[in-house]
């Protein structure tokens, strides 16, 4: 209900997800929607601890994670595999909110990141 009030800014994450802004120093931040279930995974916990050390708890807006985007996607992939094994259930994956840039009338245009990176393809098909 609130997301729609923010003109030009990304709306709230899809249901069941949390928005994070990811980027190391000097890198452009990229927004992702992370499934709630990933938050209590120890690897994600480590990213959040890093965010707290860097920015404290009082940061404004979506949680910023000081981590390179490719490393973040890699960690997310490991978490995904850890939680769901090789079998993929739709709706439980990392979503790149900046992919496709402009959000039109609905929020169904998020692309899901999995299998995008060639070096992971083998893992999925094993």
């Amino acid at each position: 209900m609130y997301g729609k009030q923010q003109q030009g800014k990304a709306a709230a994450a899809p249901k069941g997800c949390v928005t994070v802004r990811v980027g190391a120093e000097g890198e452009e931040q990229r927004r992702f929607a992370v499934p709630l279930g990933h938050l209590k995974h120890p690897l994600f916990g480590a990213l959040l601890e890093e965010a707290e050390r860097e920015y404290g708890f009082k940061q404004q807006g979506a949680i910023a994670i000081p981590c390179r985007v490719d490393r973040f996607v890699h960690v997310e992939h490991i978490i995904d595999q850890d939680l769901h094994g090789a079998a993929h259930h739709s709706g439980h994956h990392l979503i790149d909110l900046d992919d496709g840039a402009v959000h039109h009338h609905h929020h169904h245009h998020h692309s899901q990141i999995h299998l995008h990176l060639p070096r992971f393809a083998g893992c999925f098909r094993a």
Binding site: Y2, G3, A10, A11, A12, A13, K15, G16, C17, V18, T19, L36, Q60, G61, A62, I63
Partner: peptide, 10 residues
């Protein structure tokens, strides 16, 4: 929840 760009129920 609004500030963190997520739903209250989540």
């Amino acid at each position: 929840a609004r500030k963190r760009e997520m739903r209250y129920s989540d």
